[in-house]
Design a protein around this nucleic acid. Structure first.
Lengths: 146, 146
DNA sequence: CACTCTTACCCACTCTTCCCCACAATCACC
DNA sequence: GGTGATTGTGGGGAAGAGTGGGTAAGAGTG
């Protein structure tokens, strides 16, 4: 099965809820996610299945590494486990909403094994038109798609 | 079985749908495709079987490489999983339609393991007459057809 | 215990999307 | 050349999806 794909523009309502695309919901069976911010630009929503791998890598990397341990603590402190309501919406805690500058319209972006939640302005700024990348990256893309 | 071959001119109807050539449909059994834009000139339609390999390479290459991760995010955002309806048509999202400058007539072009969707004018412009390529490319052709 | 604030469930409305039926043209085959 | 199946194209209607808000249950606080 293909992973999460596409870019959807949805509304964040006054209670801080966003719908998940019905297509995404159909792809996960247990309806459990972990929402967190590990990049400054956006939030990331992991299905529980993908989260398991992340968690394993975190436990390994923080072993015997105090600096890494402190960094990961800051990330996990702001992470939440979320579950969509019967209408398929998840609640975004106020802290994370502010951290990612979300309000009003948001993009839900599929990134294969995870879903990203973006402020539309930030996402569009970050978008290189196809063909704008460096030569090195261009070549890598051809390595992927052949 | 030979891969996808040929060039068909079809109509994009007012709802944004295109028929797939019946010949192509017979070549895939599960009727599931991924449609995306990874080259600026056209859209690419991967049968799920071919997509699986692409996705695996994407997951590998983006690990430990933030620049690649950003680039791939923009590509997966412009992708959709599509499934032909009972008439054998797929729906092309408005965003992709505009990105590839599609409207009215389109070409469906077979490229072995994938299908490309082109604006006819762009495709004809991009066509080199046989013999126009560099010497290096000429030689490569002889390596293939020998 | 009473009060407040947050969270979750439910109902209702609107709009899009997708499913299905129908026509027309083409091709294949007797 | 007629006939029937297949294929591309168009459109109507029902189911589903996104959005908003009212109300009840729960957690935290004084």
């Amino acid at each position: 099965m293909a992973g999460f794909l596409g870019q959807y523009e949805y509304q964040l309502d006054q209670k801080g809820r966003v719908s998940l695309p019905a297509d995404y919901r159909r792809r996960v069976d247990d309806n459990r996610f972990v929402l967190l911010q590990w990049e400054p630009t956006h939030l990331t929503l992991f299905p529980m299945e993908a989260w398991a791998g992340v968690q394993t890598r975190m436990l390994e990397l923080r072993r015997n590494d105090p600096a890494m341990s402190r960094l990961l603590r800051q990330i996990t402190a702001r992470a939440v486990e979320v579950e969509p309501d019967k209408q398929g919406r998840i609640l975004i805690p106020a802290r994370l909403k502010e951290a990612a500058d979300l309000d009003g319209a948001v993009y839900l972006v599929g990134a294969l094994d995870r879903i990203e939640i973006w402020d539309p302005a930030r996402f569009d700024d970050a978008a290189p038109a196809p063909g704008d990348g460096s030569q090195e990256l261009e070549n890598a893309v051809y390595e992927i798609f052949g």
